[in-house]
C-alpha cells in the first residue's frame, strides 16, 4: 500500500518537497501498514533522512500514533522530526 507522508522543516528541505510517498507492506487481515512499518519504509527509501529519523514520530490524523497503530486509507500521516518552536 502506498502511503503519503507530510514532512516539514529540515526534513522537507532535505527531500525538496512537503510530502513523500512510500510503499508499505500490509500484513494479512490488516487494513493498512503499521506506524512502525511506515517509518521503516521511510528509512529504506530515504537514507538521507537517517539522522532526522532518529527520535522521529509519526502523527496520524493530527495525533502521535504508537508503533503498532495501523494507518488506513484516507488517514493524514505526518512525520514529526527535529521540532524546535519558541
Amino acid at each position: 500500500m502506498r502511503i503519503e507522508v507530510l514532512v516539514f522543516g529540515p526534513v522537507a528541505e532535505v527531500v525538496g518537497a512537503d510530502r513523500i510517498g512510500v510503499e508499505c507492506h500490509v500484513s494479512a487481515n490488516d487494513s493498512g501498514p503499521s506506524v512502525a512499518t511506515v517509518l521503516e519504509a521511510i528509512g529504506r527509501d530515504h537514507p538521507e533522512l537517517a539522522t532526522a529519523l532518529s527520535g522521529a514520530r509519526l502523527a496520524v490524523n493530527h495525533a502521535f500514533a504508537p508503533p503498532e497503530a495501523l494507518v488506513g486509507p484516507g488517514d493524514e500521516v505526518a512525520l514529526i522530526a527535529l521540532v524546535g518552536g519558541g
Partner: peptide, 14 residues
C-alpha cells in the same frame, strides 16, 4: 512547559 514544547510541538523555525 517550554522544555516539553521544544521536544514535542510540531513547530519548526528556519
Amino acid at each position: 512547559f517550554i522544555d516539553r514544547m521544544k521536544r514535542e510541538a510540531p513547530i519548526w523555525k528556519r
